[in-house]
């Protein structure tokens, strides 16, 4: 839950800085750096973990199955939304 406190604190600061483009741009670049660092560290901890390395293939298979489930479910639900609740989106397009 501490994670969310950091997120909210950032959002408050971001709101105050919303017209300062240079600050927002700097934050955006720092975000990219943090992401790369964290992904590297995630890889590092997997690489040092023999059990995780041995399971890499089955982790990939699980990821593929979950990804297909997520895609099918969301496309289906939004298809229903489009059909029943948003009838105007097709007709008023000219």
């Amino acid at each position: 839950m501490l994670i969310l406190a950091f997120l909210l604190a950032g959002a408050l600061l971001g709101w105050r800085l919303r017209y300062r483009r240079r600050w927002l741009h700097a934050a955006d670049r720092a975000t990219t750096t943090a992401v790369f660092l964290l992904i590297f560290l995630l890889g590092f901890s997997v690489g040092g973990n023999d059990a995780a390395m041995a399971a890499l293939g089955s982790l990939g298979a699980q990821a593929l199955a979950l990804s297909l489930g997520a895609l099918t479910g969301s496309v289906l639900l939004v298809w229903l939304v489009e059909r029943w609740w948003l009838p105007t989106t097709e007709t008023d397009e000219k």
Binding site: A11, W15, L17, L38
Partner: peptide, 17 residues
């Protein structure tokens, strides 16, 4: 790094108000 990332993501979200 995770806390820093969340803070930075927050700035981006708040800044796109």
């Amino acid at each position: 790094a995770l806390y820093a990332l969340l803070f930075l993501v927050g700035i981006g979200v708040g800044g796109s108000g």
